[in-house]
């Protein structure tokens, strides 16, 4: 009888490990160059997160939630942060938040231009799409092996894996958002003499923003998930607590790590989801409202009274 294993004659594993080894040896400067900006920004943000006193951090996050979303979500943010502090995992939670913030920055820097480019050229999209398909169907664990080979272990290689995993949704949604802009409105732009640059910045991007922010929400959540998984290659943060808890069969410790992750994820999800909802007041008007300055400024602002139109209950 023929056994399945009798057919195992392709040494794919050997080929791949040879290839990765070759790349790791010969393209080392490239990977150092990739690592450099990530490492610096991560260190910077991580430093700020940990240096900021707890009450200030809570205040800043609440204010951010209020400006980007609304009052209820600001209150929810305060509760989440206090709970995390109460469980004694404040420091690793800040590390995770730094990981995610850095990832969002790099995803935006990489993802938005690629998304925009894909939307404007079918040829580019035909190349980008299969790459995204592969990236998104690949289990998150599988990223770790080549990352370790190419970047080593630790928090910074972990961050690289987070960025790679979290960028695809933003690229997809950016592309989709721009392509979905009402054709008649794009034509109106052309009929009034818009060039390609004006078409993009005056019409397509402004109208795609709700969809792009929806993509940002997905990117944040993916980054959250990945920031836990990369604990396996030595990244610090909440994931490490869970990993340690499992390693020592310490259910309690693993659980508080898990609960903190869920809380943090809910907080980030709520904030970014609200951002994606259309018909929000401008960020500027919400900043003013946060400090009760809107009354003072709105009178002077009659040129662009966006603040007074649809601001109150966004």
């Amino acid at each position: 009888m023929l056994e399945a294993d009798d057919l195992a004659i392709f040494p794919v594993d050997v080929w791949i490990s040879d290839a990765v080894q070759w790349v790791a040896l010969n393209l080392r400067p490239l990977f150092i160059a990739i690592k450099w900006p990530i490492e610096n920004l991560l260190t910077f943000i991580d430093g700020i997160m940990h240096a900021t006193p707890f009450p200030v951090m809570v205040l800043v996050m609440a204010l951010l939630a209020y400006v980007l979303a609304n009052r209820n979500i600001a209150i929810f943010t305060v509760i989440v942060l206090v709970l995390i502090a109460a469980m004694g995992v404040w420091d690793p939670a800040m590390t995770t938040l730094a990981l995610i913030s850095t990832a969002i920055f790099f995803c935006a820097v990489i993802g938005l231009p690629i998304g925009i480019w894909s939307a404007r050229s079918d040829r580019v999209w035909n190349i980008v799409r299969p790459v995204l398909d592969v990236m998104q169907t690949t289990p998150t664990f599988v990223y770790l092996v080549p990352v370790v080979m190419l970047f080593g272990v630790g928090t910074v290689p972990g961050e690289v894996a987070v960025v790679i995993a979290a960028a695809p949704p933003l690229i997809r949604f950016t592309n989709l958002g721009i392509r979905m802009v009402d054709h008649e409105i794009v034509e109106a732009g052309m009929a009034f003499g818009a060039n390609r640059r004006q078409l993009l910045w005056e019409i397509q991007i402004p109208m795609a923003i709700p969809t792009i922010l929806g993509g940002l929400n997905q990117t944040v959540l993916t980054a959250m998930v990945m920031s836990v998984v990369v604990a396996m290659i030595g990244a610090e943060g909440l994931g490490l607590i869970v990993l340690q808890g499992i390693g020592r069969l310490d259910v309690g410790r693993a659980a508080i790590g898990g609960i903190a992750i869920v809380l943090l994820a809910m907080m980030l999800d709520r904030i970014t989801q609200k951002m994606a909802e259309p018909k929000r007041a401008s960020a500027r008007s919400r900043w003013l409202a946060a400090f009760n300055l809107d009354r003072i400024f709105s009178r002077r602002d009659e040129g662009e009274p966006v603040a007074t139109q649809s601001g109150s209950n966004a």
């Binding site: 009402d182 034509e187 109106a188 009929a191 003499g193």
Partner: peptide, 21 residues
């Protein structure tokens, strides 16, 4: 052509095609 569209021919659309934002 862009100059002509900007200054000499303008257009009104069936579904208005206004920028909602």
């Amino acid at each position: 052509l862009r100059e002509v569209r900007r200054t000499r021919i303008s257009m009104v659309f069936q579904h208005f095609a206004l920028l909602p934002n």
